[in-house]
Every structure is written in C-alpha cells, then in structure tokens.
Design a protein around this nucleic acid. Sequence first.
DNA 1: AGCATTGTTTCACA
DNA 2: TTGTGAAACAATGC
Length: 251
Amino acid sequence: MPELPEVERARAFVEEHGLGRRIATADDRDAYVCRPHQPGELDDALRGRTLTRALRRGKSMWFETDEGEGPVLGLHLGMAGRMVADEPEAPNRWDRFALGFEDGGRLALRDKRRLGRAVLNPDLTRLGPDAAEVGRDVFRRRVGRGGAPLKARLMDQSVIAGVGNLLADETLWQARLSPLRPAGELSDAELDALRNALRLCTRRAIRKGGVHTGEVILGRGRGQRCPRCQAEMRRAVVGGRTTWFCPIEQS
DNA sequence: AGCATTGTTTCACA
DNA sequence: TTGTGAAACAATGC
C-alpha cells in the first residue's frame, strides 16, 4: 500500500495518536526491521522520551522527541506496513516495532511483509524533494533528464521522493505520457503537465485514502480497458515493476 | 505449485 | 565516475 499518500496519512495518524505521550518502552526485538541497531538500542534511546513532532518526506517519516532535545525516530512502512494505535498486539509478531506509553497505550508499525524499517536518526540526505511539494523549475531540472524511461525516473527516490509503482502509473495515465519515453526527451510543457498530474493524483489519493483508489488503478489487470478511450491497456515491465498504460493515448 | 507483489539496497556492467 | 538495470531481501496472497 504505502506510497506518498498512505505515508502522509500515517504521519497524520501518528501526529494525532502519538504526540505528547511519554514512552515507557520500545519493542525493538525485530533485528531485521530495526537494523543496523542491536535489540535494546531503540528502547534505551526512546525510553522516557515524548514524541513532539511528526514529519514526512516522500515515503519516509520521522519523529522528533522532547522538542528536538532527544533522538529522532525514523519509520518506513516498506511494502505493506501501516500504523496502529492502542490496539492489542497482532499475532505472528506482525507488529514489527512498537512504542508502549506510560498511559498504557501503544503505537505499532504493523507489517506482515516485514520490509518496514525503524531506525534512530535516519539519514535522509539521499532523498530528493517531496513529490507533492516540489516546485516547477526544480521538477523540470530533476525529472527531465537522463536516458532512463520516464517512469523509472519518476520512481527514483533520489530524484523526487514519494512516487511508487501505482502512483506512477496513475499519474502518467492522467498526463497522457508514455512510461517508456526517455525522461530527457520531454519538453518543458510536458514536464509541467506531468507535475500538475502528479499533484492532482497525490492530493486525490490522500483525500480518498490511498493510491489504490486511482482511476486507472482500480481495474488494474488483464483485460482492463482505458477508462477514457476504451482501448485495451498494455502491460510492460519498466524500472523493474509491472506497468499498465494505454498504448493509444499515452505517448 | 508457482508467480506476483504497493518497498529499498546492493551489485554488476556499460 | 556515472548511470542504469537486475537481483536480493521477507512474507503473503492469488
């Protein structure tokens, strides 16, 4: 699930349910999710602290503690993670990381796939600007270069941060651009249209609850037809991910 | 049974 | 050196 829209909702969720509650304990026993930390390290660092700010860039979230005086907790939802608050512990250790509060409640990263991540003082220097916030000129400069397929460029988190497989397909369909076009060949007008479509798709997805609500995502799969022109959607692999697009309209 | 999967990172190669 | 693409990672669902 998690691309930028889901992560923004998760950030807001933590802002609402996690801020201001004093941490009694951190469950960091999953050494894979908490790598490279040793079990106990996050617990030692966070015990007695209070989350005071919830921030996000792209698909990464981080949380300041004690008004910036304490360590920063970084969380990533991976491929299937979500945040839950004040729910009983999930079976099968699906709560890969959790904070227990002094008030008796808890906040957990619930992630069956186990590709989520919890880390202290996360390194965000390799992330590009947030895909929902990036300005026109910066977008043109960063996205509109290189010989890689446009979709791969869009999903490169060091170029702009937040676009995943589904949001990329939805945005390219809205913008009527082929995912296969070399990114450097786009005109400024096409790049501007792409950025507008990206903002539109992102905001709509945040409002509606996630990228899976996208117009072209809902019917994803074999035999799907373009919601606009009814042509049969074509499947390809771009940037290593399954890609669906309209071969008539998207060029 | 086998394949696909919304995520990132690493590695090989041009 | 830089850029690009494939494979690995873990676990589940169809």
